[in-house]
Simulated scan of single mutants.
Amino acid sequence: MARESVASQFWQAVSEGDDSRAEALVAQLGAEDVPSLTEQLRSTQPDIRWWAARALAQVGDARAVSGLAGALADPEVAVRAVAVRALAQLSSRCPDPVRTCLPAMAALLRDPDGLVRQAAADALALCGEDAVPLLAEILARGSAPERSRAAYALRKMACLPAAVVLYRYLDDENLLVRTHAYEGLDDLGYLENTLLLP
């Protein structure tokens, strides 16, 4: 199947509202489709923007990071949510440019919509150790809801640098922060070995 044919079939499926077919075609897109997908992040149609971000999560590279970062401020809830997830997925392929987006991604922890807040917390967890210092800062100075989501993200990382941060919050006044700290350390088996934590 020619590359142009895959891209055109993908957009045809999107325009027809055939989500299953569009999703199947995402896997057949390639790096050569990144510029046109990035361009579609500026479409006037929310569905087009959503699918562009979704496809970039799969095939995007450093060229897509700036466009996806801009989509974090999209007026549509679903587009903001998929954009932050896409950046998280790109973090494993092009960590340096995504690292510069971490503050904007973390800002979505206080988004008005719960779907976006959850997507941001999950995305920051996927970014791994690069996001630990930023999440530690939020835990130290953020609002109560932001702190809860930051603790959740650190717990979900399940790595030693996150555990070191969570250890400081085992006695936090915020019940959710305490719970995430306790369960995160327990999941890693560190509650019995806290003296070994730096």
Rank of each mutant, 00 (worst) to 15 (best):
V65E: 08
A31T: 15
A81Y: 15
S92E: 14
R63Y: 06
A107P: 02
Q40N: 14
D61M: 04
A53K: 02
R42H: 13
D33W: 07
T100L: 12
T100W: 12
S91P: 06
L25M: 05
A88Q: 05
Q45P: 01
V26A: 02
A86F: 10
A71H: 08
R54E: 10
D96G: 06
A62S: 12
D33Q: 09
D113E: 15
I48L: 05
A106E: 02
V116A: 10
A88T: 02
A104I: 01
P46I: 11
A55V: 09
A69L: 11
R49T: 13
L68T: 08
L90G: 04
A64I: 08
L109Y: 02
L37G: 07
V59M: 03
R49V: 13
D61N: 15
T44D: 15
P75R: 09
Q58T: 15
L109V: 05
L108V: 14
V34E: 01
R110E: 14
V98F: 11
G114I: 12
E76L: 12
S36V: 15
Q89N: 13
V34D: 03
D74H: 14
Q45N: 12
V79S: 09
R99V: 07
A104F: 06
R85V: 10
A31S: 14
D33L: 05
A69V: 14
A88R: 09
R85P: 00
R49D: 08
I48G: 00
G114S: 13
V34R: 02
A73G: 04
L108K: 09
G60A: 07
D61F: 03
W51C: 01
P112S: 08
R80E: 12
R80L: 11
E39K: 15
A69Y: 00
E32A: 15
A106S: 05
A52K: 07
L109M: 06
R42W: 15
P75T: 11
T38N: 06
A86G: 06
A107L: 06
P75A: 13
D47K: 01
A106I: 10
R110G: 08
R63Q: 13
V82D: 11
L90A: 06
A69R: 12
L25E: 00
A62L: 00
V34S: 02
A64K: 06
R49Q: 15
D61R: 11
P103E: 08
L87W: 09
D61E: 01
